[in-house]
Every structure is written in C-alpha cells, then in structure tokens.
Amino acid sequence: MKYLMANKLTAVGAALCVLLIAVAALSPWIAPQDPLEQSFLTANQGPSEDHWLGTDAFGRDVLSRVLIGSRVSLSIGIIAPLLSALFGVWAGMIAGYLGGWTDRLLSRFSDLLMSFPSLLLGVMVAAALGPSFESAVIAIAVALFPRFVRLSRSATQVLKREPFIDASIASGRGTVSIMLKHVLPNIAGPLVVALSLWIATAIRLEAALSFLGLGAQPPTPSWGNMIRDGMTDLVGDPWPAAFAGAAITLAVLAFNMVGDALRDMLDPEIDT
C-alpha cells in the first residue's frame, strides 16, 4: 500500500478507476438527461450549455449516453475477466499440478484458443451466440480464458517443486485442499496483476465488439456502439464518437496504470 501511494501515477490511476466505477454505479442518478430521449430539433449539435458534450443524430444527449454507457462498458470489462479467471485459473492449476495427460489435454485446448487473436475469438463466440450483453461477457471471457490457464499453469508448475507442497502431500492433504490452501494463495500475485491488466483489455474488446454490433443492443448506449453510430456522420457531427472514444481511452489508461503498478509491487524481479 505504501508503494502504491508513493507512486503518483499509480495514485492517479487508482483514483480514476474508483471514479469510473462510482460514475458507472451512480450514472442513472447523475446523468443530466434521459439517454434515450430523442429530439430531432436539437440533433447533431456540438457542446452547448444544454448539452455539455453535444447531441447525436437522434438528438440524444451525448453526456448522458457516455455516463450510462460506462455501465455496459465497465461491467462487461470487469465481469468478463473475473468469469474467465474463475474457470481459467482452476484449469491452469489442475493442469500444472496434475501434469500428465490432463495437462496435455488442457494445454493443447488453451493453445488452440490462443492461436486465434482474442478479438477474432470474441467475434466468433459473440456471433455464434447472437448479439447481446450476456454473449459479449461470454465472448470476452472465452477470449481471455487461455491466458489465465497459461499463467496459472506455469506458476503452479514452479510451485509444485517446493518442499512444502511435498510436505503437505506427505501429511495426507487432499489435492483440492492443497490447491486451495497452498497453490492459489501463492500464485495470486501474478494473477491479480494479470487480472487488472486484462480488465483494460476486456474494455477494449467490449468496445470493439459493440463497434461491430455484437455487444449491447440499441437503444442501450455503450461506448463502442456510440462510436459505431457516430461513424456515419463523423465529419459533420464528430462529438458522440469523439467523447465515447475519449472515455474508452481514459478507462483503459486507468486500469493499465493500476495493473503496471501492481506488477511492480508484487513482482520484484522485474526492474522498472
């Protein structure tokens, strides 16, 4: 904690993350207008007193849409990596701890998934499931799954050679119990680092899926679909796409800053 605070950048990053999450949680109450309310008389306008970030082609308030949109973007960005970790870490620990054909099977499976770029994998899964919030979560979780498997598997393999694991086995502890009591706590460090970095990745993936029309469905705003809709008249009314893009940049930056700082703190071998 001391390290975290000593680094100004980290403090800024952490503060931004907290702020973003707070905004997302409180957005229905702090959004100045109904993000779905259309008003064609004031459509395609730049920032003004009434609409701080302007309006889109349907005359909807961009500020309100960016605020409400953060709910979709951040919730998918956080839920998907957690879901992925839940399955991926277990699969990785089992593979690393048991070894043998279990390891080969799980590793080859994650290699197979790894061979697709994560965006492509996400697009395939989301397209197969049909576009929706839930399928975006699943798609991103699947895309990140092999990364968690690899990370936890290799950390487990290293740990398995430690004498205290042998001691536990000798004392008659069960496999599951060893994994929970000894393996998981010891590999948690790198996993937390990875998780925070992959939240940033997940936010980017969600934006890309929404941009391709595979994320949250209209009229629900998300940062990705705001960019997509804003593309049509990018020259005439760049505001919706620009501000949604800025929001994505901010969120990705914030989570990356925190992730980097956690890595520096938990992984002393990496010299920065």
Binding site: F40, A43, N44, A57, F58, T232, D233, V235, G236, D237
Partner: peptide
C-alpha cells in the same frame, strides 16, 4: 444518400 437523421443537411453544410 444515406438514411440517417440529419445526414443530408450535414452534407449540404459541408
């Protein structure tokens, strides 16, 4: 043309 609200007016303006 495109069928997006306000698109034509925007092109004429540009």
């Amino acid at each position: 043309g495109a069928t997006v609200p306000g698109w034509q007016a925007s092109v004429v303006k540009q």
